[in-house]
């Protein structure tokens, strides 16, 4: 894949991917963008080594998920200085307030449940596809979804 083809793939996937990561990071847009950048860099390096995934988007989401887990373990998720994003602090505060309940509810879910819920309801993946992305079984994904649904019902 050439650099130009890779950029075309990025342009086609980045909006949805960043939106997904923002939900995964419970509204921390700076961390979401950092994760997105890192995921695309890793994908680019993998292409350079000859990796050719069948489904670029699913593969990208797997990279993003693994990076998210690594960040959680090392607690590297950063606080966003809003000015670096070019978004006024007031606008960002409004946005966070608007989705406060959702972020709080998502934050209460363990990472695996959160990931399953977001991939299923936000991205429309099937349980089998989610199992492939999160490298687990179909049955485990169903359990995560059931628990996640129950938790969200109680909180939202």
């Amino acid at each position: 894949m050439t650099r130009q083809q890779f950029i075309e793939q990025v342009k086609g996937t980045q909006a949805g991917f960043r939106r997904f990561l923002t939900a995964l990071c419970c509204g921390d847009t700076q961390s979401a963008d950092d994760l997105a950048q890192e995921a695309y860099i890793r994908a680019y390096l993998a292409f350079g080594k000859g990796d050719r995934p069948d489904n670029f988007k699913a593969w990208l989401y797997r990279i993003g998920y693994n990076l998210f887990l690594n960040c959680q373990r090392s607690e590297k998720l950063s606080v966003d200085p809003a000015s670096l994003l070019g978004i006024a602090a007031e606008q960002r505060a409004d946005d966070t307030f608007r989705y406060q309940h959702l972020y709080t509810a998502l934050d209460s879910l363990p990472p695996k449940e959160r990931m399953s819920v977001l991939l299923y309801y936000m991205e429309g993946y099937s349980t089998k596809e989610i199992a492939a992305i999160t490298e687990t079984t179909d049955e485990a994904v169903r359990q995560h979804l059931a628990r996640g649904r129950r938790h969200l019902r109680n909180l939202l």
Binding site: I7, Q37, G86, I87, D94, D95
Partner: peptide
């Protein structure tokens, strides 16, 4: 769910 995120152009430029 439509969170406020930085511009696409800025993101791609940085990348």
């Amino acid at each position: 769910f439509e969170p406020l995120i930085s511009s696409d152009e800025r993101f791609i430029m940085h990348l």
